[in-house]
Design a protein around this nucleic acid. Structure first.
Lengths: 150, 150
DNA sequence: ACACTGGTGGGTAAGTGTGGGTAGAAGAGG
DNA sequence: CCTCTTCTACCCACACTTACCCACCAGTGT
């Protein structure tokens, strides 16, 4: 079970390679075989799943009803741009251009560990995302941790 | 179960290392493996959780719905700056620059034991926090201990 | 007075992030 | 069908940061 956490701002080189921070690298289970699946996130960002975690998602999707239009749409969105990528000798993964373009990532990337997966953001987009939040961290924390929806 | 209490003012060296007061060190359960997770607090301070206590928080987060935008925001805020750190041979932990900057901690730190976790403050910020409280200790105590929201 | 505990400071080697070069594979065009 | 071009994957090299190690000082209790 992976436990990615922390964040870094790293550079994306001219070949579209992104380094996985060593701290996160150490959280990858050996079952992942140094393989990741990259797909588009719910916001304007990318999700990077180690293989062992991705398999769990695949299984969930398999269980969905093929006849439900909403389910089909969800599957298409999730899988449309899903790409596998392996770590190179320097522990980097190569991200396809289309995905980088989707998340508007160019020379710099904000890398965020979220337990079972890693998120990739354009640093500016992430800032904008934070700024767009209506409630403060403390307010949301109270709601979430104590199930107080007030 | 940890029971941190008391407070100290210690120095932060040029490498961002902070000593854990020996009194608190003795409160750390062996299950923590001399490992801590540091993250940002709700106020302008840092939370330091021994590993065994942090795992409890992680499990709460894992149970959250990934599809709820508020939950995602909370996870990002909590995990964004979360860093693991191990005690060195001198019983110190290293705090990353970004976290020290967030809490405005430079050469000195106010260390506060709060049962399950330790808080790190800039001594001046802590003073300001105390000064900003509208109600007296006694008034708040009455509200908290007797659920009197008066 | 000495030993021991607790807090502080700094040097060095290994690890980590970044950039570029080259060869092989895949695709387009003659 | 062969050739040229483009893209990808693997390799190597360098600069910087981190973590580990050792040393010192002050206070306390024996």
């Amino acid at each position: 079970m992976s436990v990615f956490k922390g964040s870094n701002i790293y550079s994306v080189d001219s070949k579209g390679r992104i380094n996985i921070p060593s701290r996160m690298r150490k959280s990858i289970s050996p079952e992942a075989n140094e393989t990741f699946t990259i797909t588009r996130g719910f916001e304007k960002c990318l999700f990077v799943y180690p293989q062992d975690e991705w398999v769990k998602i695949e299984n969930k999707i398999r269980a969905l009803s093929q006849t439900n239009p909403q389910h089909r749409f969800f599957m298409r969105m999730l899988l449309q741009q899903a790409t596998e990528s392996q770590l190179d000798a320097q522990a980097r993964i190569t991200i396809p251009k289309e995905l980088l373009e989707f998340a508007a990532i160019d020379s710099e990337v904000f890398i965020l560990g979220l337990l079972d997966h890693i998120e990739l953001w354009n640093p500016q987009e992430y800032k904008a995302y934070l700024a767009a939040q209506q409630k403060s961290y403390a307010e949301v924390a109270e709601m979430v941790l104590w199930n107080n929806d007030g």
